[in-house]
């Protein structure tokens, strides 16, 4: 089997496993949709973003898309990698001719594919239910989604080495992202967050991904590409990948 066909063979199985796993179906697919519906129901009116007054639903569609992308890539990939490693599956795969890079990159591509699908679902829901207009720069939005998902998948590989049991994977990822959602302009608009918390948030990539996703919704002309923010997100991803290349573990932690 050639390289491309072998990769497609692995990716198909990994996508099937994602879709058949109830945990990923509910937490990755259903939860962001529920969040958008709840936030849109609780918060009414308009908010100020970058000096512009916009309907609050126009803020929440890209904000919850940030959460959807991070769930699909960071949370989902971390849980998948830790579970496969601790069950001995990664070790076994390493004993087959399947290249190690395919095992890893196939998981990352699953994260990106699910992130793109989730973004499309949330965008469609916002348009149908809340009248949020589809951004004119759909290319700019797509680039932000793919760069974000790929970077957060890479962060997942580095993060997975710090999680030692399958049971700890879900709580550990949530502990990492939930506080950042509050201060990074995901759950509440940035204009309502105290300055010092905002300053902390700018260190981490969630803040920058949220800004990059929001831009196409507030800027109705041009590419609406938040190049600086996306570069910071990508830099996190590349740094994490380099770290993971040195620290990634294939054998179960319990039997090392």
């Amino acid at each position: 089997m050639g390289g491309v066909r072998l990769f497609a063979h692995q990716l198909r199985a990994d996508l099937l496993r994602f879709w058949r796993n109830p945990q990923s179906r509910y937490f990755t697919v259903l939860l962001p949709i529920v969040f958008l519906v709840i936030f849109a129901a609780i918060f009414k009116g308009r908010t100020i973003v970058d000096g512009k007054t916009i309907p609050i639903t126009t803020f929440y569609v890209p904000a919850i898309t940030t959460l959807g992308i991070i769930s699909a890539s960071f949370v989902n990939v971390t849980i998948a990698v830790v579970t496969q490693r601790e069950s001995g599956e990664l070790k076994r795969l390493r004993g087959t001719p399947l290249p190690a890079s395919f095992v890893i990159s196939s998981r990352a591509v699953v994260g990106v594919v699910v992130a793109v699908v989730m973004s499309a679902l949330l965008l469609t829901l916002g348009w149908l239910a809340y009248g949020v207009s589809i951004p004119s720069s759909i290319v700019g939005l797509t680039i932000a989604v793919v760069v974000g998902a790929a970077s957060f998948a890479c962060i997942a590989f580095a993060f997975s080495t710090r999680v030692h049991t399958a049971d700890a994977a879900a709580p550990a990822t949530n502990l990492a992202v939930l506080p950042l959602y509050f201060i990074s302009g995901v759950f509440v608009p940035e204009s309502q967050i105290p300055r010092f918390l905002r300053d902390i948030a700018t260190v981490f990539p969630i803040h920058h991904l949220a800004k990059a996703l929001l831009l196409p919704f507030t800027r109705t002309h041009g590419a609406a590409l938040a190049g600086g923010d996306l570069l910071i997100v990508a830099a996190w991803g590349i740094a994490a990948l380099l770290l993971a290349a040195r620290t990634f573990q294939w054998s179960p932690h319990a039997a090392s």
Partner: peptide, 8 residues
């Protein structure tokens, strides 16, 4: 010991 992928 090896646990197989339960989804397949």
């Amino acid at each position: 010991s090896c646990t197989m992928p339960p989804e397949l």
